[in-house]
Design a protein around this nucleic acid. Structure first.
Lengths: 333, 333
DNA sequence: ATTAGTTTTGAAAACGTTTTCAATTTGCTA
DNA sequence: TAGCAAATTGAAAACGTTTTCAAAACTAAT
């Protein structure tokens, strides 16, 4: 009554052929006489043989599994990317091992190593702060790694993103054009290049073009949480800020609700623009205007890129920038 | 310059011991003389040896990987469960292979089979409709499977849920007590037992206790999407419905926004209660009253249960019901 | 029939571990 | 210091595939 596994050997015996031949038909190798193939397939069917992927992985050194490191799958932004990743992975017959890192450097290194230990064929990394230790691990491995919706300032790994600087710059310019003088820039940790080097740069450029002096006090660094957003209202209001460019949807929803709850009218008295265009932007009232990112596609393209790398195909552009858009909804005038 | 992998054999040679001994120290087996252990550890460190999990899996017949079948990771409800699953999995040194099924029966069967092929040690299944084919596959495998936040009417697999019937019954009773006569029951596919057998039952029971006749017209079957909710307003209003018990948060948000957009005041003119208490319930305005489910815990407990099953430990209760709550927010009077 | 190519096949060696079982070493006790 | 049990080690056989290389079986042309 013990687990009686059927192996390739059993099939070979029953079909009167060698294991090699069975392996060939299982793998769709064409160099098999049709009659033989038929015979083998019949036996496979009769015995209900299922190849053992682990053994296969050991022998072939391919696992058809890729690792996906994600800060938090409960965050709509990353979840959307991950969905794109999984769909394309499935399309190419890969499975994904998904691991949440909570953007914790040590955890990221640890996860990366267990993924490598498990011999994944490739890795997709999401997370915006790449510690020196992590970078070193990236460098050490031969396993291809691509960043999705994530910036590495040293730009050594292939990546898929949008042009955050240009998008923010454009939105802030629009805010200025509508008469806003004091515009807050609210973002996640400034230790993340995506915020400090890219988005903030767009913000500064827009101000500069308009001749508005940059005021450090208008930059609010947060942890990207809804709650943090809610708590920002007093500070924002007391400084006479009339608009905010926000780097995360939950955060933005928090700011907007905080404002509304305090009796500040959005958008007439306060405009908010968010950055990720997740479902949340649409569900919230007023609906939030947003930079639109092709979230699903960022994941999908990243995974597609990874398949090429795993296949040793040539890739022309290692750092892909997908087009972004600006979606006007009801949180802006 | 080829991938020069260090194997256990290299370590054994350098340390002047057998592979068996190296294996023992790597696996923390206590029957190794401290001096030997130290020597081996030094070599491991020097050579930067990393055990190959695939080979290990083949030899030991354990992969320390579990499969997770999820309808859509982009759905906050399931994403929250999955987060609990992954955290507990990590705690017990497992990784998860996550696969989206879109609740498609064929896809579920297919995914299940590739997971089994990959020799996962266990499986967590989310999805509320278990086709006969899928059930048959469940039955065929020896690999333990537990359902998380998902109902199988035949109840053969271990599962973790809340008492959906009681929760709905309680909420609907409250709605009745507040004077609502026409209460809609809005849910996902009635082909899913969780809706047709459990939630609907609670709804009916509440009506019956209050002596209100059950009207099939007040039952709205949807696909659980935000959009479907938005489109429901005309039907709801025209029938004179004053409250809705909804089975999904996005769906509920859609209904609420649909109402509000049409000028119907929530909650004074229309009350809505949702069922999953995801972030969305809190972010939306008015905040939605909801049945509260310990989402993270459902996942966490399911995974914990699975670890026991994988370990052949005794489990006393195979079908766990976690406590639910009722959270009063602003979408009810 | 023979020959020279082509296809098809099979034997056996990987792949990198764990695990079993027996052999060796060690530590105590008398 | 012999004897014995316990602790420590190692040899080699799994684990279930893929892959290489050569042999065998065809095919077609003479």
């Amino acid at each position: 009554m013990e687990k009686q596994t059927i192996t390739i050997y059993d099939v070979a015996r029953e079909a009167n052929v060698s294991m090699a031949t069975v392996s060939r038909v299982v793998n769709g190798n064409t160099n098999v006489k049709p009659a033989t193939r038929k015979k083998v397939l019949e036996v496979i069917d009769r015995l209900d043989y299922r190849p053992n992927a682990v053994a296969r992985g050991l022998a072939s050194k391919k696992t058809t599994t890729v690792g996906v490191i994600i800060p938090d799958m409960t965050n709509m932004f990353f979840a959307s990317l991950a969905r794109g990743i999984d769909d394309v992975a499935a399309m190419y017959k890969y499975n994904i091992i998904l691991a949440n890192s909570d953007s914790n450097g040590d955890r990221e290194v640890q996860v990366l190593n267990t993924l490598l230990t498990k011999q994944v064929d490739g890795i997709i990394f999401m997370g915006n702060e790449i510690t020196p230790e992590l970078r070193e691990e990236f460098r050490r491995t031969k396993t291809p790694i691509v960043l999705a919706g994530s910036i590495d300032e040293e730009n050594v790994n292939p990546s898929v993103n949008i042009d955050y600087t240009a998008a923010v710059q454009e939105e802030v310019k629009n805010l200025i054009d509508r008469g806003n003088k004091k515009i807050a820039f609210v973002c996640g940790p400034l230790s993340q290049a995506i915020n400090s080097k890219y988005r903030l740069k767009g913000y500064k450029e827009a101000l500069k073009s308009a001749g508005i002096p940059y005021d450090e006090k208008l930059v609010f660094e947060t942890d990207n949480s809804y709650k943090s957003g809610m708590l920002l209202q007093p500070a924002l209001s007391s400084m006479g800020v009339t608009a905010a460019m926000v780097s995360d949807d939950e955060l933005a929803a928090g700011i907007m609700n905080g404002m509304t709850d305090a009796g500040v009218k959005v958008p007439s008295e306060f405009e908010v623009i968010t950055s990720n265009d997740t479902k949340i932007a649409e569900i919230v009232r007023p609906k939030m205007s947003s930079i639109t990112q092709p979230l699903y596609d960022i994941g999908a393209v990243a995974m597609r890129l990874l398949t090429k790398l795993m296949n040793n195909e040539e890739v022309n552009e290692k750092n892909v920038l997908l087009p972004y858009g600006l979606m006007k909804r009801d949180s802006t005038k």
